[in-house]
Design a protein around this nucleic acid. Structure first.
Lengths: 211, 211
DNA sequence: TATAATAAGAACAAATAGAGAACAAGGTTT
DNA sequence: AAACCTTGTTCTCTATTTGTTCTTATTATA
């Protein structure tokens, strides 16, 4: 550990091959694969070089595991968080005058784990300025956790009169449901609780500045 | 996270077959169907491989259910985009009083393709209220494309006096560089162009409402 | 000449892969 | 309900692949 040894020519060559390999693949190569890529015929001699890379802490020791040759830095550690798990349905634009369930043919969008919960989530794209005071702008995406309840002050997706879908702050009393825009120039709207159905609550937001 | 095991060759082959299968059919395949598709003769050995996929959480356990082999996640929409490509470095909090290059040991965050460009990007977490009029709040994440130039009006990450890093709107003249907060209660700041270095421009923003 | 680097190949051990038998749980047919 | 079929599960045994450890030989370099 303290006896630092510079890499030899061959060790460099092998290390560079490994770095390159991981740019194209998450899978560690086998020794034989490295051999044939570098024109070697002996696994044995290759192994000794790799052992040096392990000593230099550039490669993690692969204890007899097949395909166990991995680079040490966090950068090259293959990330196999299952990208599938970070993918949730995109249900189109909000306030589009349609119940969400009606939208069948949706696509999927990958979402960072930080922006969603463990429960069922979906993505909507915001239309309009009713939430600008909360920093949610026209064309932003919002990540919504599917739910049919909320507490006062939550930002929710509401289905009004089985017709219009909207994103608002909710205040509920036994006799009334009030949907409050986060926009000083707009007025809260009062509804009969039976006419408002909660479709989910806000858990994340994203915006792209690229056009 | 260190107990990640790469899939073996055969496991990959089987997983890919399953993904492909679900593109054409809603019905999970039987073990025998997989066997004949892959040229195997023994259900027993196939089952062992599938068990590994279950352990890797790529496949849901099918407790003796016939045709019980399902990919994980609610839907079967297969996504095999390389998650590595959607992962960019997280460089910590902005306005942290340190040049970005100085930060060495960073982690990575997965970012939806919609929020980044083809070029080199990184993520910062915003501290402070200087951009609230643009809907960028305290603790939001911003995605920055690495660049050393910008045009007037762009939102940029600037390194001031080789010391402080900040997110502002830029206005450049030959003799002056002005950094303008998007916050009515704050004043633009004037600098000698030599003292301001552009480190990137804003391309995306994200916010989490979970706590 | 002496030393390090490189290479080949043999021999071994562990991981991986495959076949087939036997069994168990669910369906289906009668 | 009983008999039958299908299909998932478990098991043992064997084969192949692949990482590891050796020994030996060749070449480059100080």
């Amino acid at each position: 550990m303290s006896d630092y040894q510079p890499l030899t020519r061959k060790q460099q060559e092998i290390y560079q091959f490994l770095v390159k390999h991981y740019q194209n693949s998450d899978n560690p190569p086998t020794l034989d694969e490295i051999c044939s890529a570098l024109g070697l015929r002996s696994r044995g001699s290759l192994h000794k070089h790799i052992q040096h890379l392990v000593d230099a802490k550039l490669v993690e020791p692969s204890n007899r595991k097949q395909r166990g040759i991995r680079l040490t830095t966090s950068e090259n550690t293959p990330i196999i968080e299952n990208s599938k798990n970070n993918t949730i349905p995109y249900l189109g634009k909000i306030a589009a005058g349609q119940p969400l369930e009606a939208i069948a043919d949706y696509s999927k969008i990958m979402i960072p784990t930080q922006l969603k919960t463990e429960n069922d989530c979906y993505v909507l794209q915001v239309t309009g300025d009713s939430m600008i005071d909360l920093g949610i702008f026209n064309n932003d995406w919002v990540i919504i956790e599917k739910r049919n309840y909320a507490k006062n002050g939550d930002v929710i997706v509401a289905l009004i009169n089985n017709d219009e879908v909207t994103l608002k702050i909710i205040e509920q009393t036994p006799s009334k449901t009030i949907l409050i825009p986060a926009n000083k120039s707009m007025q809260p709207m009062h509804f009969d609780p039976n006419n408002v159905q909660i479709q989910g609550i806000l858990v994340g937001q994203m915006r792209s500045y690229i056009h």
